[in-house]
Design a protein around this nucleic acid. Structure first.
Lengths: 217, 217, 217, 217
DNA sequence: GATGAATGAGGGTTCATTCAT
DNA sequence: TATGAATGAACCCTCATTCAT
């Protein structure tokens, strides 16, 4: 049992609450690991419980159902994305905006591979839980499309199909989460060795900018 | 029901065999649908059987086990890929070779979205069945990398990281299989409406060639 | 397909009938092997069919049910026994009668180990199919007991408990069928190497006669 | 319900544990009953569960698999035997040693008929689980054989084939477990009426000693 | 006669969840 | 809170048998 920290900076949590938070965190991590590997149907609460160091009844003390746990994680991805994957509104420079977008999307994939993969399993499974998400995503995409189309109309970038461009960026960045195993093997890395993020970002950004007819720096 | 061919000396199947072939085909399709949606663990033989119009014991008359059925499909993807995703050896023109590669990779994803997704679920699940595949894939990739590097050394294309380039192509094309649902929604298509493949190919090829510092036609 | 023998001694069988007989023999052998190893419940018709070189539906063309096949074999043991294990009525010499009995009982076990074991599995399983057999066996035993008791009364052999004596002979001889595997290992024989029957008979007979207070030859 | 012992420092089981022990005992008994009747393949976990007063999933809460349960019981026989069936090393008197051996072997058969029968079903089935046991049994037998042969060389008993003698004792004693049903019927006993053990031991011992050329007391 | 196919029951096992304690 | 136990459904698969052909 860890010692209670005397002056917890972010508000004094009771020991019990700390324990509860820690356990909830362990459950979250375990659930991400299992759902991202096997999808909703294929994941088992037993495996989640064991990974979190709990018994199955203990797990059900903290969560109410497998489905709710899954949806919580799924919504957590969606919320993370809706916050992160917006075009930087402080700039109107295609190069800057696109570079920043690529970087943020890749960062999310590399920082949250498990959550990213859960979204992928959901889409693979038909996206039945995404009914409410699609309109949001479509709207958010449309805003980006409109901006890109304006840039194109203003002659500031090549006349690409904006939607296709966004999907290509999505595909390339998501790949580093979904296909992490393959990426590591192809790059000759050990399974837990981190990839050279800056290198990837550089390659990716240059590739995208050139693909858009923009001269990288 | 297919027309009986009058004098097909070797192709003539007895009606029984025709039935068997048809059922095996239905099982294959059903298995692809279920495995690609839910992965190996999440897919149920009951669902596969029902989708194929069979009862569960009937299914086991045609297959020997869930695992074998899955592995058969998985190996079918791997074999399909090892045949399809090679650089065209008849040409040494980067533009031609890369364009052709992109086209083939995309064609496979669009023509076999289910099989493609099965591979994705396998990778998501950790790739435990891919032990024998990785060396083949690595070797095949290395050959492509070597060729690209030669082109770069000869000043015939931009100095990209060849491995990263190949992964980006993989990510972009695989996206049309794995994220088919999202692609349709983003493009405003009905779920079973086919996408405009030629348009995608054009956009994608141009994007890739420009990204490689090559002038598209 | 074997040639039909020209002058079949026991009546000319049509080729079909010969085939039928041969198949029935194969089924019988296969059934003995499976039932003797696994008992009635544990034996599977699939294994019997395969061992006989048939498919399951083919098997059912020749037999009507697993149960009937089993009972047929079981009754075949019972009939064999009721014929074989009677005291030689041509003699009234304890030594001769007992020696002959031991020899016949052992011969049966060694010549029909499979059938012998089927009876053992039946007894182990509770003997539910032996309802009609017990009275016969009891009566047959009683006759032997009466004879032995007469011999004892006449002072021609030691005062043994005749029933126990008979059970001991049963146990010792049956052992060579039921525990065939162990017998081979203990005697250092290969699994299919025949045991030295004459040696066993000699040891066994001497042992029994001495145990009955009779001087062996 | 057993009385709670007041101060039993190490023997005090919580009520829960008592319940668990009781259930495990019931499972053991039920498994012995079913396996000894039908062998490994023929026994069903459903029957075991019902006999133990459990449902099938409940049973799996206490055991991990049918196979493991079976092997546990089988090894329990083997261990029991390796402990029990040794020649009394405190004596060098053939009569005493053999008598004691017969008695112990018979006692085990009568006290543990179910376990004894499980071994028999295993041998009947081919003894595939006994690979590790045979060497032990052979060695243990060889020690007995050596001793008997010494006795014979010293002229202290008749020149029997020691291995055959041991098999005969095995067969006669094992008979009371394997053929319990028949024994009861032959002796005119009700199915659950105990047999007169002392009588059997006396008959058996006298029989064996005389058979070995030794004068019983 | 013999084959592919079908069927309904049951095999052993694991599932997510709930209930006492 | 946390644990052992229970529950009913569902898991994958095999069973003995029957039915067309």
């Amino acid at each position: 049992m860890p010692e209670p920290e005397i002056d917890a900076p972010s508000g004094a949590l009771s020991r019990a609450k700390q324990g509860r938070e820690r356990i909830l965190g362990a459950i979250r991590e375990a659930a991400i690991a299992e759902f991202s590997r096997h999808g909703f149907k294929g994941a088992s609460t037993k495996a989640i419980a064991e990974r979190a160091g709990l018994t199955k009844p203990q797990l059900h003390y903290y969560i109410s159902s497998k489905e709710e746990l899954y949806e919580e994680l799924l919504y957590s991805v969606l919320n993370g994305w809706s916050g992160a994957f917006i075009f930087d509104s402080n700039s109107d420079d295609p190069k800057k905006v696109l570079s920043s977008y690529v970087r943020k999307k890749l960062d999310y994939a590399l920082d949250n591979p498990g959550l990213s993969r859960i979204f992928t399993t959901e889409v693979l499974g038909g996206g039945r839980n995404l009914g409410k998400y699609w309109p949001v995503a479509v709207k958010s995409t449309q805003q980006k499309v409109d901006l890109i189309n304006r840039w194109i109309a203003e002659g500031r970038m090549r006349a690409v199909d904006a939607k296709v461009l966004l999907m290509q960026i999505w595909g390339m960045t998501q790949h580093y989460a979904d296909y992490g195993v393959q990426v590591h093997i192809m790059l000759g890395l050990a399974p837990d060795e981190p990839i050279d993020r800056e290198h990837i970002v550089r390659e990716l950004t240059t590739f995208v900018l050139l693909g858009c007819g923009l001269a990288p720096d």
